[in-house]
Design a protein around this nucleic acid. Structure first.
Lengths: 200, 200
DNA sequence: CGCCGCGGGTGACGGCTGTCATGGCCGGTG
DNA sequence: CACCGGCCATGACAGCCGTCACCCGCGGCG
């Protein structure tokens, strides 16, 4: 029997996935959580074999949750189930020691199968995403990421400078470098590209 | 027996919702489709009582699908199930004659209950969203929407002008008006706000 | 008819952006 | 020690952005 905890913020999807997994005779859904912090509490209480988690959740993300499990050396596997086919996300997930990374685009049957594979000690990584993950690395450094994130919210160089205690010229230099590294024409495109790649 | 067709692009969610609905003894899932065009074909073949559809799908969106059903006066109810709590979306959905509009944030049990309500001839609209929908209307006109959409992709006034056969000054005027109407500081914030409200 | 409102355009102004060259200040490393 | 590379700053310049006042042409409408 594979004992599973489910973390997913959208209640309807959470309920539906739970129904789906409970159809399998060798899988038992112990419980579910609507955000990262709740999942962290439930996980210690229920001691599941496998945690199935989304990435984008309020408070603590699925990636941060996986990191925390790794740091505390808790004896359970983690499987990420997400909408986002972003190489950067998979990369961070693998760094956090997860055993599975599936896309919600994948057929529903894959999920139960992936849980069995992982429970046996194997890995279940979306194959085409695995290729991309190591192909192009994040070229941005911390400052560039930081500045780009704020620029993407519509803030001007001056606003950003004030927030980070930098000069407004320096902020523009960082933005210029990020734009150059990403090979795009302006901050908006740079933000979109970096976001899509999972680098923010 | 309520005969249902399911349209949802994410395979895993589609399978999970299908499993969820099939647990109900008075509901039968006739089939499912991964995009709007496929749903349109299946819907004519299977003649379901209710179509349950997502909004964001490749090709034809759920909103466009609902409009098409309305135009052809097909004898079926439509229930939208979506991630997006955007007043503008609900508004357009109601204009397209849908009977239900649920958020994926809502508890899973709501879905079956909503289907029963709708099948009985009632409406199932997310209550707090219904309030917002009529509170603030979209202040943008067609041109402003068009220009803002392109600006949000990182295109310059010149690029946009070329695409729409306008002068580059006119594009800037439209952007300026949109920024003013939305009460924000620049095109990036204008785009984000309009998008969040469901006006794009 | 005159008069509006609306879609589109022009030109000018100040401020912001993106680029580049240059320089100072560390903290390694040979 | 000298040297380099990362980090931060400055200043200059061209070009783009956001705003405003004003213009034209056209369809409706009293």
């Amino acid at each position: 029997m594979i004992r599973v905890l489910l973390a997913e913020d959208q209640a309807m999807v959470r309920g539906a996935l739970s129904a789906l997994l409970n159809l399998e005779s060798d899988i038992e859904v112990l419980g579910s959580a609507a955000d990262g912090e709740a999942a962290w509490r439930e996980l210690q209480r229920l001691q599941p074999d496998v945690l199935v988690t989304d990435i984008e959740m309020p408070g603590l993300t699925g990636l941060e949750l996986a990191q925390r499990i790794q740091r505390h050396e808790l004896p359970m596997k983690v499987v990420i189930v997400t909408t986002f086919a972003r190489p950067g996300f998979l990369r961070r997930a693998l760094d956090a020691g997860v055993s599975g990374y599936l896309l919600k685009d994948a057929p529903a049957e894959n999920l139960a199968e992936a849980l069995r594979t992982v429970h046996r000690g194997g890995r279940a990584i979306d194959p085409q995403l695995a290729l991309e993950a190591w192909s192009d690395a994040d070229p941005l450094n911390d400052r560039e990421r930081q500045v780009l994130r704020l620029a993407g919210e519509g803030q001007s160089a001056g606003d950003i400078a004030a927030q980070l205690n930098l000069s407004h010229g320096t902020v523009r230099n960082y933005l210029s470098e990020a734009i150059g590294k990403l090979g795009v024409a302006n901050r908006i495109e740079a933000y979109r590209l970096a976001r899509q790649k999972g680098w923010l």
